[in-house]
């Protein structure tokens, strides 16, 4: 069977900006596939190329074996696209929006009525269906947008940052829903710059940075590839630098410790990469005690997707995000995305 989504060597440039340099990914049917990367990495542009909103400069884009470039109408039929910014007509009610959506996908009237009813129930929107969407909260708007994207039962649901700006409860509801959807056989391709979102949902993840895929695999594969455990150690809540240096020198000498960094942003705490082993924490605490240093807090964790990103790019996702948001021109991007 053809993969649900196949993207090969995708390239897209807007004037001097290379939004996507080289993106290839294969999404197998029935997966939640996560595209993780900082703002401005090229995630949205990739999705826009997939959903036929943007014509790529180069590359192959296919949905269930149908080329989105050569046969866009057919590809659109197979896709459900939920954009990052929810664009609802605030004068229409939720039901009217879904009716419009159903007509745009040419559902027969009877089928449309039945699907709308079922989808409203599925997303717990019954009580709001006949209110104008202008009165909806952020979470409701997103749910209605999801309902609209699902009405024609697409093969692949494409979500751009599905929970950005939502409260925790709405986010949980959407996570649960996406899992449910996946379990019923719909393929989901989603972007996020939230690590925990991709970690919690994605069966496979591609990490994308500056227009390129820099790592791909299941989240645990990626973490295993980075290797080692992460230990965060705080001697005191705010340790003086000389104490931190002293502890660092001592810890570095321990046989299972691979790397130690002092993080001045968090009260000179120590970030350690260690060979995974059960005694690590107690050994370190014991060693500290012997040189007369206290332990304010110590925690051990498996590497996170952020560590994967860090290992590949030399910076954390958060830092990349902050750096990118300084460089972005939201107005120019809006224009870019206008058709």
């Amino acid at each position: 069977m053809a993969p649900a989504v196949l993207i090969q060597n995708l390239q897209k440039r807007y004037g001097p900006v290379e939004a996507v340099k080289d993106v290839s990914l294969t999404v197998e049917p029935g997966q939640i596939f996560g595209l993780l990367g900082p703002n401005g990495a090229g995630k949205t542009t990739t999705l826009r190329c997939l959903c036929t909103l943007t014509k790529p400069d180069l590359g192959i884009v296919e949905v269930a074996g149908v080329s989105a470039i050569k046969n866009p109408k057919k590809a659109r039929q197979l896709l459900g696209y939920v954009a990052q910014e929810v664009a609802l007509d605030k004068v229409l009610t939720g039901r009217e929006l879904l009716q419009l959506q159903a007509a745009l996908y040419h559902l027969p009237r009877a089928v449309a009525a039945e699907r709308i009813k079922a989808t409203l129930a599925l997303l717990d929107l019954d009580n709001y269906a006949d209110q104008k969407t202008g009165t909806y909260s952020g979470g409701l708007r997103k749910r209605l947008d999801l309902a609209a994207g699902l009405l024609h039962q697409p093969v692949v649901l494409v979500l751009d940052e599905p929970t950005v700006g939502l409260d925790i409860e709405s986010r949980r509801v959407i996570w649960d829903f996406l899992r449910q959807l996946r379990d019923s056989g719909t393929t989901v391709l989603m972007t996020s710059h939230y690590l925990e979102e991709i970690d919690a949902l994605a069966d496979r993840v591609a990490i994308i940075d500056q227009g390129k895929v820099i790592a791909e695999g299941t989240p645990s594969e990626l973490k295993d590839q980075v290797g080692g455990d992460r230990i965060t150690l705080r001697i005191r809540e705010f340790a003086p630098l000389d104490e931190a240096e002293k502890a660092k020198a001592m810890i570095q000498a321990l046989p299972f410790v691979q790397d130690v960094l002092i993080n001045p942003d968090q009260g000179n705490s120590l970030n350690l990469v260690v060979v995974p082993q059960s005694e690590a924490l107690s050994t370190i605490q014991q060693a500290l005690k012997e040189v007369g240093l206290p332990t304010f807090g110590i925690a051990q964790a498996r590497p996170s997707l952020d560590d994967v990103y860090l290992a590949a790019t030399g910076r954390t996702l958060l830092d990349a995000d902050v750096a990118a948001s300084g460089k972005r021109d939201p107005k120019a991007e809006r224009k870019q995305n206008m058709r």
């Binding site: 149908v66 057919k74 039929q77 717990d124 093969v155 509801v173 019923s184």
Partner: peptide, 24 residues
């Protein structure tokens, strides 16, 4: 959130076989 199961998506195979002609 309801627990109604989502309808299984059976259309996954169909598109590849169905004719590519689209209404104009």
């Amino acid at each position: 959130m309801t627990t109604t199961p989502v309808k299984p998506n059976t259309s996954l195979v169909a598109p590849a076989n169905s004719p590519l002609k689209t209404p104009g």
